[in-house]
């Protein structure tokens, strides 16, 4: 039985690795197909054909695409993300600090959003049809429908412009006290919590309601269990799989999809870096960022799947 579970998990990890390979292939060739020649752009208008050819040779741009892909992939496996075309700095160095920033923001949002969503989702399911459930449902649907830049700019307008409580920008450089950290993170965290929680609340509620409607929860109620016990002890453990997946999907958004929030609050995260990379045609940077997003996404989804496998006694 134990071996069977290990087999399932290995299988899952293997398919994640395969997905990653396919994605890296797609990322590389998609960026390679961007119009324009990097060498020409880098050298500017004064470039002589000889200089362009020399630079192309130096950057291996004259090699067939497949060799460049192999070279790039091999570098990736060794942890070498390549060198930025634009300012000749290793990409790892460019990404490093930004990546930490993004992860920090994502981490704080997770700490707030997950417990909040689980509590609201589960309690809404527990009191399905009540006034409380309806309020939660209306609010979550409202939040899903409002685009995040709207929430972000409204928050800036309210807290920074009118109330003057919080700074409008989130430069993480001049932090001296814990209080300042709170102030800097408050608005991005609130905005992102709004964005990711709504989906999690809906999915958690639906997953729990699905299990509440099963005969074994009815059997628990007929044993005299309170509604609370029936939901927490009997329904919830069987809803872990779908809930873990809903959480993973929502959180994966935090890895790469927060560009609007980063732009509005001028937060130095990785998504903003990638957009800057696109405007300067910095291929190694774009590719590395895309791969990092993909790894983050796959890690979350794979983790959720493994949780679901372990939560099922039929395979455990």
């Amino acid at each position: 039985m134990r071996n069977y579970v290990l087999g399932l998990i290995t299988n899952r990890l293997g398919s994640a690795a395969l997905t990653l390979l396919i994605v890296s292939f797609a990322v590389f060739f998609a960026t390679a197909m961007l119009p324009g020649d990097t060498a020409t752009i880098l050298l500017g208008q004064a470039a002589t054909p000889e200089a362009v050819a020399g630079l192309r040779a130096a950057m291996h741009l004259d090699e067939p695409a497949f060799f460049r892909f192999a070279r790039w992939l091999f570098g990736l496996l060794q942890g070498d993300l390549g060198t930025s075309y634009v300012n000749n700095v290793p990409v790892a160095e460019l990404i490093g600090a930004r990546f930490v920033n993004t992860m920090r923001l994502a981490g704080i949002v997770t700490l707030f959003a997950v417990p909040l969503s689980l509590t609201l989702g589960i309690t809404a399911a527990m009191f399905r049809g009540s006034v409380y459930d309806r309020i939660v449902t209306v609010l979550t649907i409202g939040v899903i429908s409002v685009p995040e830049f709207m929430i972000a700019t409204s928050a800036v307008l309210l807290f920074s412009v009118y109330l003057k409580w919080l700074p409008a920008l989130s430069f993480a450089s001049d932090v001296t006290s814990f209080w300042q950290v709170l102030k800097i993170y408050a608005m991005p965290v609130i905005t992102l919590t709004f964005v990711v929680s709504a989906q999690m609340i809906r999915m958690t509620r639906a997953a729990v309601i699905d299990t509440i409607n099963t005969p074994y929860v009815e059997a628990a109620i007929l044993k005299g269990a309170s509604r609370r016990r029936a939901v927490l002890v009997h329904a919830l453990p069987n809803a872990v799989g779908p809930i873990a997946n809903a959480i993973a999907l929502s959180l994966s958004y935090l890895v790469g999809g927060v560009i609007i929030v980063e732009t509005i609050f001028n937060y130095p995260g990785i998504a903003k870096l990638m957009v800057d990379g696109v405007s300067t045609r910095d291929l190694p940077l774009i590719q590395s960022c895309a791969i990092i997003f993909c790894i983050g996404y796959l890690a979350l989804i794979t983790f959720a799947d493994i949780v679901a496998i372990l939560a099922n006694p039929r395979v455990r």
């Binding site: 005969p215 074994y216 109620i221 007929l222 269990a225 069987n238």
Partner: peptide
């Protein structure tokens, strides 16, 4: 509802049609 819960399982108990569905699969 609370007083009913005190009777359920204690004074009156229930054997369901499909025990296969009425047992919680994860416990």
């Amino acid at each position: 509802e609370r007083q009913r819960a005190n009777v359920r399982g204690l004074e009156v108990s229930y054997v369901p049609q499909s025990a296969a569905a009425a047992f919680n699969p994860s416990k």
